[in-house]
């Protein structure tokens, strides 16, 4: 029996140690650097919590937070509404069910960076061409060229990819609802709209929770698509938090400051996920 315990320990301990070295140590290093004025090279001094104070006075950082949150909230809502509607359609009695589901899932497997390049071309050349053809002034120039509208392009591109994933999750949720629930409600004379709000939606609530939490988390970390669509521009209007940490932390001599930024960012992501889980779990029902 003793040897069995020993083997279990040899199975897990080396992995735990590696995990500690390459996950926990950098985490602590991040906290440590956030208390220094390090530039990423050379010597540095310990400056306490000054970086954290500086963060709130730094317009660049505040802009990145504003943009990232605006982007994440709008995209999460948009993606979930469209995904539920698509899932209802794809789960109803239709022809070519398998092929259609397969098609709708394709954007999810493609890399965000390259999809971003394709959408970049679409926004820069094709949509203005369509706008000119129709004589619509608002569409005749590139969305990505103006600070006021560039974020819309990123929302569209990211939503295009994420809807694929969320739709599949909602379909698997819809498949857990037994047919007889609807038969019972049909006898009671419930209409389609009532059916959705009183039966379907409460029963797929766990899947709604998963999707809301995952969406919010992923969108707060957005990087790839922005890199290829706008590189954070124009006028830094689409610089997300990840992008700012990457740009200014690694090449902008702000290693210490951006470490503090990433600590705040980490705390926010944990807090938001926990909050969402708590609020959304309350509303779930079980059959």
């Amino acid at each position: 029996m003793k040897s069995k315990d020993k083997i279990f320990m040899t199975m897990s301990l080396p992995i735990i140690i590696i995990f500690f070295c390459f996950h926990t140590i950098p985490l602590f290093c991040g906290f440590f650097y956030s208390l220094t004025n390090s530039k990423g090279f050379g010597t540095y001094d310990f400056i306490g919590f000054k970086n954290y104070l500086k963060l709130f006075q730094n317009a660049q950082v505040m802009n990145a937070y504003m943009f990232t949150f605006k982007f994440a909230v709008i995209t999460t809502l948009l993606v979930n509404v469209i995904s539920i509607i698509l899932a209802l359609g794809l789960n109803s009695k239709i022809h070519f069910k398998g092929a259609l589901r397969g098609l709708y899932f394709v954007p999810n497997i493609l890399g965000g960076l390259i999809v971003g390049y394709i959408f970049n071309f679409l926004f820069t050349f094709v949509i203005p061409a369509v706008g000119n053809g129709l004589g619509w002034d608002s569409l005749s120039t590139s969305l990505l060229g103006k600070p006021e509208t560039a974020w819309i392009g990123i929302v569209v591109c990211v939503a295009w990819q994420s809807i694929a994933f969320n739709t599949i999750i909602y379909i698997s949720g819809l498949q857990t609802i037994p047919e007889d629930v609807y038969e019972a409600s049909a006898i009671d004379g419930a209409s389609g709209w009532n059916n959705f709000w009183k039966i379907t939606f409460p029963l797929i609530a766990p899947f709604f929770t998963i999707n809301m939490v995952l969406c919010m988390r992923n969108f707060l970390m957005v990087f790839d698509q922005i890199m290829s669509l706008t590189s954070g521009g124009p006028a830094e209007s689409t610089t997300s938090i990840s992008m700012l940490i990457y740009k200014n932390g690694l090449t902008g001599n702000q290693f210490g400051l951006q470490s503090a930024n990433s600590v705040i960012y980490f705390i926010l992501i944990v807090a938001i996920s926990a909050f969402q889980l708590k609020v959304l779990n309350k509303r779930e029902v079980q059959l």
């Binding site: 290093c29 991040g30 990840s242 990457y246 990433s262 980490f266």
Partner: peptide, 27 residues
């Protein structure tokens, strides 16, 4: 101890890569 291992590993799910990125590059 194994219960601790479990929660230790799983809780890493909430840590965004950009948080570890700067120190990891050096390491």
């Amino acid at each position: 101890i194994y219960k601790f291992f479990y929660y230790y590993l799983v809780s890493a799910m909430f840590v965004p890569f950009s948080m570890l990125m700067l120190p990891l590059v050096k390491q």
